[in-house]
Computed example of a mutant assay.
Amino acid sequence: MIVKKLDPILREVDEAIKRCLKAEVDSIGRIQAGDWGENEFEYYARLIDSDEIRIFHHIRIAYRGFAFQIDCLILTPHFAIIIEIKNLKGVLTISNEQLIQNVDGRQSRVPNPIAQVKTQSFHFMRWLEEHGIESYPIINLVVSTNRRAIFEFVEPCEEARQMYVHADNFPLKFRMLEIQNPANLTQSNLNELSKTILASHKPKYNNTLEKYGLTEDDFVFELKCQACGFHLMTYKKGAWHCDRCGETCKDCHVQLIRDYLLILGRGISLKECRQLFGIQSRNILRNLLRKMNLKLVGNRKSARYFLSKK
């Protein structure tokens, strides 16, 4: 990354940016456990993916002057599913009103996921109504991604029993819901709804540039050889190769993508990655991004990748 047009204060601006980026990365690390759980669920979500289904991870929808965020939103012709993802270990004592976590004999109350997902569902229902969609069923689920977590239900818990599911059981739960619910939307309606949701997605505002009085034009994002500093590297046979000194590196793209996402704060598409790295293969680009554990919003051509930060 090179800052242009700022030669007199290049060193000071560069150090300020580094301090800002370090603060952002430190913040991301503090929620690493929760992000791991959400990334774990994405594997199971891919098991149900098909041409008739639209899956949105970490979608943040603007609505009446604020925005509500959903861990995972799944649209099908039959229904929508809103999923609250939890990566909690230990014994989970669950009722309709509360969730108690017991780890090594120590109990603590956790904010009620049922209340959280119901609030998201209420806002999404109102959002749908404002966009002319009514009588579209919304199913609320709480998915546990910790493989060793144990559910213990206490009364009243009828609603909780229907909503809680372990991540590895989710594909079966989904198929059962499909069988139980008739189709409500045509594929054309579903496609249009998906486009509207993506248009309403509003990532949290990133004020990094404003903070330092910079604009996007002040940056050139280029992959630089760490050995000789040359700005031309080619990806082949699973590694980056410097065209000047022959140095190889498997992950030197990672820092560039993180800088890009942290500074611009808008996510990155496969098309933008192709322009950034000169790689034409969508499969190679998807693989590079997937290994970074980025958050995926949208799917197929509309997909954008964001840092794992809420």
Rank of each mutant, 00 (worst) to 15 (best):
M292N: 08
V297R: 02
I82F: 02
P171Q: 05
V165R: 01
Q280T: 09
E247C: 13
N189V: 00
E152F: 05
C225N: 06
P111S: 07
R60K: 11
E178A: 11
S108R: 14
A239S: 13
L223F: 03
L270T: 14
A16V: 01
E210F: 04
T215K: 07
L177V: 00
Y164P: 02
N293M: 13
Q98W: 00
S144C: 09
M233A: 09
Q69L: 06
R11I: 11
N181A: 02
R54S: 08
F151K: 00
K211I: 13
N112M: 06
W240D: 10
D71T: 01
F151H: 01
V154E: 14
R148A: 07
F174W: 11
A239K: 12
C228I: 05
N169V: 01
A183H: 02
I17R: 00
V142L: 08
L289V: 04
L296Y: 06
E158R: 13
Q226M: 06
C273I: 03
E152G: 01
D168H: 05
A227F: 02
E247T: 13
S269I: 02
G90E: 04
E97I: 01
K195C: 11
V142G: 02
I17S: 00
S144H: 00
R304I: 04
P171A: 10
R244C: 04
N184S: 09
L262N: 05
L296A: 13
K236W: 05
D26C: 04
L172I: 08
D7K: 14
T186M: 09
L261K: 00
P203G: 12
I179R: 14
I59E: 06
I82C: 10
V165N: 03
I2L: 15
N102I: 14
N293F: 07
V91R: 11
E15P: 01
F230C: 03
R126H: 12
N287P: 07
R147W: 00
L193A: 08
G229Q: 13
L190D: 04
P77W: 02
L296M: 13
